[in-house]
């Protein structure tokens, strides 16, 4: 009460002395009330501006400049390049454009497979673990371990397992099961795509599991009881009640998984180092290499901008499509 009482009495005394003072004070009070939400948002806003939005604008500007190592000390002196960086990136007959297109297609295939498998494992595990059984709590904790482990620690362990001469995978498939004539390379050549996929799914599915578990808790129990009374079996309950109820959760989950997987840098970087084998050359690694290994930041920025445009279009279409589908099923 004290904080609100003090200005009120002050206002009353001021009113007696100076008739013009009262509206001004009331206005400053209203200003404070309106200003408060902005004040609360200010730190978040400033930091987002500094780290995300301003760099994005600079990135777009740089994509129109010829920024090589000669200009990196003061990037504002670099000459304008017009659309050169873009034409270089999308000229699919030339080596640079060809490599970018290849990397893009690899990333698309990788993302579809990885997101699909993560979703499948996460959903199946969450649905199987909806009912209580002995050891459920323990398993739930265990399944979150890949999510909790720092990326580099987990991925380095996988890199060790996939070593040609001293790894676990080759020991099992070559030495113990005798499936191959000679131990294959997993971190070089075409196999590296499969390696990357396995590691990515191992790392990513617990997040789907976590979100699905949270989503399942919001389904009211009595729907199942009513369905059971009507004679619906467990499989039917899962198909008719559980999966449809998870639709809104799915909309967000699939989008988040898609963006994270498509932009993933950490997994291939720790697995393969600064330059990934062609079969596992994800777009982030490709752009990183184009910018930092060859010191052509202009071209790297142009590729990043193209990537962002692609993600914006896909996200927009996805949201439009899934929201319309939702409306149609509601109505």
């Amino acid at each position: 009460m004290t904080t609100t009482a003090a200005p009120a009495t002050g206002e009353r005394t001021a009113q007696r002395n100076d008739p013009g003072a009262a509206p001004r004070r009331r206005r400053s009070g209203r200003l404070r009330r309106i200003g408060l939400p902005y004040l609360l948002l200010l730190p978040a806003l400033l930091l987002e501006l500094l780290v995300h939005l301003v760099p994005m604008v600079i990135g777009i500007v740089v994509s129109f400049r010829e920024l090589t190592q000669f200009y990196v000390r003061d990037w504002t002196t670099s000459p304008w390049a017009g659309l050169d960086n873009y034409t270089l990136s999308v000229d699919f007959d030339a080596p640079v454009g060809q490599a970018l297109l290849h990397s893009f297609l690899i990333t698309c295939l990788f993302t579809v497979l990885s997101v699909g498998l993560c979703w499948l494992l996460g959903t199946a595990a969450a649905v199987f673990m909806q009912e209580t059984f002995r050891g459920r709590g323990f398993l739930r904790t265990l399944f979150l371990v890949p999510y909790a482990l720092p990326v580099y620690a987990a991925v380095i362990t996988w890199a060790f397992m996939f070593q040609r001469d001293n790894g676990l995978i080759n020991h099992v498939i070559h030495d113990q099961l005798g499936l191959t004539d000679s131990p294959p390379f997993w971190l070089l050549g075409d196999n590296s795509f499969f390696t990357l996929l396995v590691v990515s799914v191992w790392k990513g599915w617990p997040f789907a599991f976590l979100i699905m578990m949270a989503g399942l808790q919001n389904i009211p129990r009595d729907i199942y009881e009513a369905a059971a009374l009507d004679g619906a079996g467990v499989w039917q309950q899962i198909r008719r009640i559980t999966l449809p109820s998870l639709r809104p959760v799915n909309q967000v989950l699939v989008l988040v998984l898609f963006l994270w997987t498509f932009n993933d840098f950490n997994t291939p970087f720790v697995l393969f180092g600064k330059s990934a084998p062609a079969a596992a050359d994800l777009i982030s690694i490709h752009i990183y290499q184009s910018s930092f290994q060859t010191w052509n930041f202009g071209a790297g920025s142009a590729m990043s901008v193209l990537l962002l445009l692609f993600l914006l279009v896909v996200t927009g279409l996805y949201l439009l499509f899934t929201s319309r589908g939702k409306k149609a099923s509601d109505g």
Binding site: I58, V62, S284, I287, S291, S301, S304, L311, T315
Partner: peptide, 24 residues
């Protein structure tokens, strides 16, 4: 505008603002 902007930064590829942030 605020909530949409903040959320959409999630979709930016880290590689896009790594170099500009370095310059800033």
């Amino acid at each position: 505008v605020f909530t949409v902007t903040v959320l959409s930064t999630q979709m930016f590829p880290g590689i896009l603002f790594l170099l500009p942030l370095f310059l800033i």
